[in-house]
Simulated assay, not measured.
Amino acid sequence: MADKIAIVTGAARGIGLATTRLLLRDGFRVAMLDIDAEELHARAEGLSGVRAYPCDVSDPGSVTATFAAVAADMGGIDALVNNAGIADFGPIEETDFTRWRRVMDTNLDGVFLCSQAATPALIARRGVIVNIASISGLRASTLRVAYGTSKAAVIHLTKQQAVELGEYGVRANCVCPGPVRTKLAMAVHSQEIIDAYHDAIPLNRYGSEEEIGEVIAFLCSARASYVTGQIVASDGGFESTGVGLPALRK
């Protein structure tokens, strides 16, 4: 595994940073990409086996230049983790085209651009793509007309990638996190929201960044060598609950 190279976008914090650490544990060298250059370099400084590349995944020019730099510095690509994304929520009637495009630019276009840039290298090494969508791409929710739609599109894009790249030995899978106990979530989720999630999730808790990262790391590994085109909800059972009326819970 010593010569395995992974690219992780949105790697400066949260799930991306947790995934980076887990891939390092598994023997990958990791190209860490993030739009926040200062935070990216600060996080990369304490890690062995990484290189940091500031990159705006929504900008075709930035993606092209960054992936060329990764190729020059690190060689091929064995795994691409498309994790970078933004959460910009609001009522459907208040969602203008500016908000819509801002979300799509990063959450959908970024996945497309990075995947296209990586495809020749992934084909050469029979690599793997892991796209990070969301439980919001599997089930509708309030305030998420742009966010949820972008993540649903990522799910379908993953299936297209699996079907079209499979003949080259390239695998593509998608992880859909449920509520995750990140610093951002805990800063904006009231106790009422936390209690509501507790009632709605069969495991009765938020997930951790590391728990999501473990699923991603597995899909990047040879242990998942016959797994492609799959949408994995890492959500404590949230997507399985259907109506899930709290009054019916014991």
Rank of each mutant, 00 (worst) to 15 (best):
L108Q: 10
G110I: 06
R125T: 13
P179I: 14
F67G: 06
S136E: 12
H156E: 14
R125D: 05
I135P: 00
A65W: 00
V163A: 15
E45V: 00
T95G: 06
N83Q: 12
D109R: 09
G127R: 09
G178I: 05
F67W: 10
R43D: 02
E39H: 11
F97G: 00
I92N: 01
A72V: 07
A71R: 15
D73N: 12
D73Y: 03
T64F: 00
T95F: 03
E45K: 13
F112T: 05
P54A: 09
V103M: 03
I132P: 01
T66C: 14
V170G: 10
E39R: 15
R99T: 14
V111C: 14
P54T: 07
D78W: 06
G110V: 07
A52T: 04
V145Y: 00
T66K: 04
D78A: 03
T158P: 12
V180P: 04
Y168T: 03
S141C: 10
L122R: 06
G127Y: 08
T98I: 09
N107E: 08
S62I: 08
A42I: 09
H156A: 08
T142E: 15
G166M: 12
Y53Q: 07
V154F: 10
I77H: 01
C114R: 03
N83L: 10
L40F: 06
A146L: 06
G110N: 07
T95Y: 04
G178P: 06
V128Y: 00
V81H: 05
G46L: 04
T64E: 15
V111I: 08
L40G: 10
